[in-house]
């Protein structure tokens, strides 16, 4: 019987030590929402770790590295899943395009308004623009502060200033974006 190589032993050791950790990391994602199979992700992550072991890369913090590998594997699986689905979606989209009306005044007006707001956001100065964009995409102040590695106070300050600028830009553009209550 053939003896396991050094790399194989090392890989086994990692899997033994970090297997449960990897599972917990994968479970922290709401995978069912995206139709992803946790086992596919774990398998992908195992392959990446095996490749790293074979390349004899030196990693300072193994838990952080494994966490990164799992996160990347989740995103890559999502991308793969989308690629698989894309042909079906493309066909559906074509059918829908053929059956819907060409022009709808209300949706055209809304689209123009969205474009205007988007342009106004792009006009903000960089630091405020980042915060405002993340906020308008539904991130909380805590999540924005954590991502940008800023204090909540600084984030709040920039957000407040950014939103004030945005409203001023819209006012300058004479845009009435608020919906009137009936």
């Amino acid at each position: 019987m053939e003896r396991p190589t050094l790399a194989e032993e090392e890989f086994k050791q990692i899997m033994q030590d970090f297997g449960p950790f990897m599972k917990v990391e994968v479970q922290r994602f709401n995978l069912s929402k995206y139709g992803l199979d946790p086992e596919d992700i774990l398998q992908d992550a195992r392959i990446r770790i095996w490749q790293s072991v074979q390349r004899e890369r030196t990693i300072i913090s193994l838990p952080a590295y494994i966490k990164k590998i799992v996160n990347s594997a989740v995103i890559d699986q999502l991308r793969k899943r989308r690629r698989d689905d894309s042909l079906v979606h493309l066909e559906q989209h074509r059918c829908v395009s053929e059956t819907t009306n060409g022009y709808d005044r209300e949706s055209a007006r809304k689209k123009a308004m969205e474009e205007t707001v988007g342009r106004a956001v792009e006009r903000l100065i960089s630091s405020r623009r980042q915060v405002v964009k993340l906020y308008l995409l539904n991130l909380t102040i805590q999540e924005i502060a954590s991502y940008l590695n800023w204090s909540p106070d600084k984030t709040r300050n920039l957000l407040y200033r950014g939103l004030a600028d945005l409203k001023q830009h819209l006012k300058d553009m004479e845009v009435e974006y608020e919906q009137r209550s009936r």
């Binding site: 809304k110 689209k111 707001v117 956001v121 308008l136 995409l137 945005l166």
Partner: peptide, 10 residues
């Protein structure tokens, strides 16, 4: 409303 419009733009 701003969020809705920006998300529409995005």
């Amino acid at each position: 409303r701003l969020k809705e419009l920006f998300q529409g733009y995005a």
